[in-house]
């Protein structure tokens, strides 16, 4: 175990474990508190926030793997359709990691706009994957969820952005 904060964030394995534990806690919060506090049926997608921000700072390779791991954690908590969130978040991590070089990361409004976009993309990917596995999911239902989910998710962006930004700074130092 690293002795201080700085060496902790330099070790990719500890960062991955930290993000998975954080993701786990945020998933519990989503299914409890944020179910009661849902707005227009929407809930924040914390796993998406962690995936997108991690991908923006760490690139497509690490972003894709982290998205896959965090998405699979979400699948394990849901207990059904294992792999659908993993694939969805993996793709998002990969894509947003690829465009990361073109993003001005120090302006925190840009990654928040990315979150809104990624949330809509995530809903679309989720819809396509659900159709592939044979679920009779409705497009209208997906659309009704996607917009409030996206806005709610983007609202939580700044909080987690600061955390990932600082973590990345420590890691990069």
């Amino acid at each position: 175990m690293p002795k201080d904060k700085e060496s902790f964030f330099r070790n990719p394995l500890f960062v991955a474990i930290f993000l998975l534990v954080l993701g786990y806690i945020l998933l519990i919060l989503r299914d409890t508190l944020f179910t009661k506090w849902s707005i227009a049926g929407g809930k924040p997608d914390f796993i998406l926030i962690l995936t997108v921000y991690y991908a923006i700072f760490q690139g497509w390779k690490k972003g894709g793997i982290m998205g896959l791991a965090l998405g699979f954690l979400e699948d394990l908590m849901a207990g059904r359709f294992l792999g659908i969130n993993a694939l969805c978040k993996g793709i998002i991590g990969l894509v947003f990691g690829l465009v990361a070089g073109k993003i001005y990361r120090d302006n925190f409004l840009v990654p928040i706009a990315c979150l809104l976009l990624s949330s809509l993309c995530s809903s679309a990917i989720y819809f396509v994957l659900a159709k592939i596995i044979g679920s009779n999911i409705y497009f209208s239902g997906m659309l009704l969820n996607a917009v409030p989910n996206g806005i709610y998710t983007a609202c939580f962006g700044p909080v987690l952005y600061v955390l990932i930004y600082l973590m990345n700074k420590k890691e990069g130092e």
Binding site: F81, G83, I84, L87, L129, I133, S135
Partner: peptide, 13 residues
């Protein structure tokens, strides 16, 4: 692999 896994786990286990 993940799509196959999702298909296998569509029902409650």
């Amino acid at each position: 692999l993940l799509i196959s896994l999702a298909v296998l786990t569509t029902q409650q286990r």
